[in-house]
């Protein structure tokens, strides 16, 4: 359960609208189902009262929407940011993707967001309602009555391995500030590294061959903000909307992850939106882990203006041949 509710967000937003500090609000909007929350833009209290929601399905990271929204008017946009969202916010500022002056950022605490996929898998078909209470996640189903699951078991992967509950950017903070956490987010990567080369190949073939090339992972990624994307280039060799060959699966995924290497804050949005449940974060985290391993710890978005590892170097960096061994282990 979240410590902060929609009423508090509406009050805060309405007060800022009334005071003229901001003239529009980026927040979470009700979708068709309780768990189907979508980003929305609000300009009045009435709209917010009708449609703004905040709860355990508000994983969506609002920072990317600021790029387009800040270009639309002179006034400021209010944005609510969870701790992990603030890293993306900073990263976008580092890359000069929006004007900080046009944004009023309110940091909000987060108790972890739930995974709809996990709930669906546990509760089965015919979910009619999901409530999150002190008891846990209460799921009403059409065919099989009401089921209750522990909150922590239904957490999204990224929240189970949350790297930080501390906001790294805001104009104002609601609730209590958290801390940077000691997360086990690289464990899964290490497990794959420990497999044999054949097993790794089979593992990734199994995952990546499910990709339908909807490009949702790219579209949602706060680091993927190019106006012209390489995947729209007919000469790229992978411009097809449907993957026709196993090579394209790998090429698409390597390139997508590489383009955000050193800039990915590990916000987990790619894995959240993938309709095929492909663990894209395991590709991004591999790059983060390797870069940390080779050139020292670096967290994208922690500080505005920090220099990402791929646009930096040391005279005595390791040679690629040795680096592969260091990152992957002897085999």
């Amino acid at each position: 359960m979240q410590k902060i509710n929609r009423e508090a967000l509406i009050e805060k937003a309405a007060a800022l609208l009334d005071a003229g500090t901001v003239d529009r609000v980026l927040a979470w909007k009700r979708g068709e189902f309780d768990y189907d929350v979508t980003p929305g833009l609000f300009t009045t209290r009435e709209q917010m009262e009708a449609e703004l929601v905040f709860g355990d399905f508000c994983g969506a990271n609002m920072s990317k929407y600021l790029i387009k929204e800040t270009l639309k008017g002179e006034g400021k946009v209010l944005v609510f940011l969870k701790p992990c969202d603030t890293y993306s916010f900073n990263q976008l500022l580092t890359e000069h993707r929006f004007d900080r002056e046009k944004v009023y950022a309110v940091g909000i605490p987060c108790e972890g967001m739930l995974s709809v996929t996990a709930i669906k898998a546990a509760a089965g078909d015919g979910i009619s309602k999901i409530d999150v209470t002190e008891e846990g996640v209460v799921v009403e189903t059409l065919f099989d009555g009401t089921k209750v699951f522990g909150h922590d078991e239904m957490l999204a992967e990224r929240c189970r391995n949350c790297k930080s509950k501390r906001h790294v950017a805001y104009d104002e903070l609601m609730g209590e500030e958290g801390e940077v956490l000691d997360s086990a987010r690289f464990d899964e990567v290490a497990k794959i590294e420990a497999m044999s080369s054949e097993e790794r190949f089979a593992f990734w073939q199994g995952e990546l061959s499910r990709c339908i090339r909807c490009n949702a992972c790219r579209d949602v990624c706060p680091a993927c903000t190019c106006e012209k994307c390489v995947f729209g280039n007919p000469d790229s060799g992978i411009e097809n909307k449907a993957i026709t060959d196993s090579f394209e699966e790998k090429m698409f995924h390597i390139i997508r992850a590489f383009h955000v290497a050193g800039r990915c804050t590990d916000c987990g949005e790619c894995s959240r939106v993938c309709p095929q449940q492909i663990p894209l974060h395991l590709l991004n985290r591999k790059f983060i882990k390797d870069a940390n391993n080779l050139w020292g710890d670096y967290q994208a978005g922690e500080e505005v203006g920090s220099r990402a590892p791929l646009v930096d170097f040391d005279f005595d960096d390791m040679e690629p041949g040795e680096a592969v061994i260091k990152n992957g282990g002897e085999q």
Partner: peptide, 15 residues
């Protein structure tokens, strides 16, 4: 050198 270190490690990771 940095770029290829990451790329080659990724290829290795994908088997």
């Amino acid at each position: 050198r940095r770029r290829m270190s990451l790329l080659f490690s990724m290829l290795d990771y994908l088997g």
